[in-house]
Every structure is written in C-alpha cells, then in structure tokens.
C-alpha cells in the first residue's frame, strides 16, 4: 500500500485545522472504502485524518426525532431501538450492509460521504427526510440529504468540511418505511438495485388501519387495498444504483401522495419509478433488468411500509 501519514485528532476543530495545514489530506472514518481505494490505487492521499476518535461525532439524541452522529458504526446504530421501531428503512439497510466485520468499523457518515450509487444507507435517509449537519470553517450548516448527493462519489460539501450528524424528523405513528436491497447473493454483496420508501397515512385513517389489521392481516395486503380506502398523506420513494446518485423518484411519489392507495396508484407509482430510473448495463447487472427490478422493489417496499404503518397502529 502506498505510504501515507495518519493523524488522530480528538476534536472537530483539530481535524479541520489539520486538514487545512496538510497537503493532499483526506478524512477517514471506518476506512472500509478509503483504504480499499488506496490499495486499489484509485486514490493516493498523503495524509489521512481519522474521525474515529472525535466524541462529538458519536452522539445520539432522541428528542424531536433522532440525531445520530456521523461516526457511529453500523453495528452501534443497529442497537438503537428507535431506529428499529420508527426508522425501519434505515434499520433494514444497516442489517444488509457488508458483513459483521465491516459493520463493526464502517460509519454511516462514511457510507453517505463515499456516495456510491449503491450506498445502503442513502435511500433510507432520503425517504426519512434526513438533514445532513456539516461542520466547517464557517461554522455548522444543514443540508437536506436530497441536495447532498451530487454524483458518484461527489457530495455537496467542501473537502475540508466534516459531516457531523444526521437529523431525522419524527414522523406520525401511522408511518412505515422499508428498504430492500436486491443482490445476487444473500450477504457480502453490493445492491444490483435498491429501493426505499416511506408512507405516512392521514391521522383520521388510524382506525381504518386498525380494522385492516384485525380483519385480514397484513399478508393479504395487496389484494385487500381496494377494500380499504387508505389516504396517503406523504409518500417517499428513493432508488439506488439506477442513476449516478441515489435519488428520490419524485414523480412516483406524486402518484401516491395525496391519493388513495390502491392497486392502480401503486402500479402507476412503480411504472413512474421505472421511468425515472436511468439504469446502465454494467458487469453487476443489465439495464433492462434493473429497470424491471425498480418496479418490483418499489412495490415491495411500499407494501412493506404500509404493513409496518399498520402494525404501528395496532
């Protein structure tokens, strides 16, 4: 591996000033992307500045939503009960990323800042309306995650800036979200296509949701949609690997948002999502297949979101 110096600052300020003073420096968190890139000679920084030992990057705050520090590792995030309960899409992604060994060092900040189109936590954060909190010379600023991804490997922050945390709003209880990663094998894999969705129903439908559950159970969901006029107050759909960046399929969202969820609106949303996708042929998957999978995964994540919303109300 090419030589580099390695620095371990204890505070954000120290990290920033190191970055400013060093030539050809780069931040490193868990290192599972950065070190692989260096080994594969895709990049060759002279200095790595570790963010692993900065305590303020490991905060968890649980009021008015959830704030999670960027340098929390995936395995720690999995232990946060609120993520499992209220932000299921993120939980799904955390379980699916890499392997246990990777999840034991890889951080959510690293996953987001690496900005691979297949980044597992990206789609969940998109549908969960996350805000990215960024620290830099001019202080701290917030960027909606949707504006944060710019292209493969590029994000809306200065190189010297540090993502410190992600803020997730709190959602009404009648909300469900889900993430599905489509892979060729069941572990240690990158997504061929990935999709996340969030559905928030209207408050007045709560009793209907309960009825739904008591009458039929969630397994019969797709067939029963027509009997239960569920009004979608807010819909989010995000897709991975089928564009230069993880993105929200907003036309698909608008097929559902402010509408009743039924077979037809669901199908429209899936068709629209497939239209919005711009998949490519790569060795990891063929474009036509990826587009097909966008439809399937969109449907499945929405149904899973609905199921979870219903279960939340039970």
């Amino acid at each position: 591996m090419k030589k580099f110096d390695y620095h371990i600052p204890k505070s954000l300020e120290e990290a920033l000033s190191l970055f400013k003073s060093l030539e050809n420096a780069k931040y490193i968190a868990g290192g599972t992307d950065v070190l692989v890139n260096i080994k594969r000679k895709k990049e060759s920084p002279s200095h790595l500045i570790s963010l692993r030992n900065i305590d303020s990057l490991k905060v968890v705050e649980k009021k008015d939503g959830l704030k999670i520090g960027s340098c929390l590792i995936h395995q720690e995030l999995l232990k946060i009960e609120e993520i499992r309960t209220y932000y299921s899409a993120l939980y799904d992604a955390l379980t699916k990323l890499g392997s246990k060994q990777i999840r034991n060092v890889a951080t959510i900040g690293g996953n987001i800042c690496n900005a691979a189109p297949s980044a597992d936590t990206a789609c969940p954060l998109l549908v969960l309306d996350a805000q990215v909190v960024i620290f830099g010379e001019k202080g701290t600023r917030m960027v909606p995650i949707d504006d944060f991804f710019e292209g493969p490997g590029t994000v809306a922050k200065e190189e010297s800036e540090i993502v410190t945390s992600f803020e997730l709003p709190s959602f009404p209880k009648y909300t469900g979200s889900a993430y599905i990663k489509h892979t060729r094998r069941e572990a240690m894999d990158l997504a061929m296509v990935s999709a996340a969705s969030r559905i928030t129903f209207a408050a007045e439908d709560q009793s209907l949701l309960r009825d739904f559950l008591s009458s039929k159970g969630v397994e019969e969901l797709d067939k029963e949609l027509k009997n239960y006029p569920l009004f979608v107050k807010e819909a989010r759909i995000a897709l991975g690997v089928v564009a230069p960046r993880p993105f929200r399929a907003k036309k698909a969202e608008s097929c559902l948002e402010g509408k009743f969820l039924n077979e037809e609106t669901l199908r429209e949303a899936c068709e629209k999502a497939a239209e919005e996708a711009q998949p490519r042929d790569t060795i990891r998957g063929e474009a036509w297949y990826r587009r097909e999978m966008v439809k399937v995964l969109t449907k499945r994540t929405i149904l899973l979101s609905v199921k979870r919303a219903i279960e939340m109300c039970s």
Binding site: R184, R185, E186, D189, I283
Partner: peptide, 15 residues
C-alpha cells in the same frame, strides 16, 4: 472484469 470476491460470487453462509 470481476476479479474480486465482491463481484465473483462464491456463496456465503447466508446462501
């Protein structure tokens, strides 16, 4: 084009 363990899919314990 796929000379690595991520892209050459030998099966894992999950499979």
């Amino acid at each position: 084009k796929n000379g690595n363990f991520l892209d050459y899919k030998i099966l894992t314990v999950r499979d």
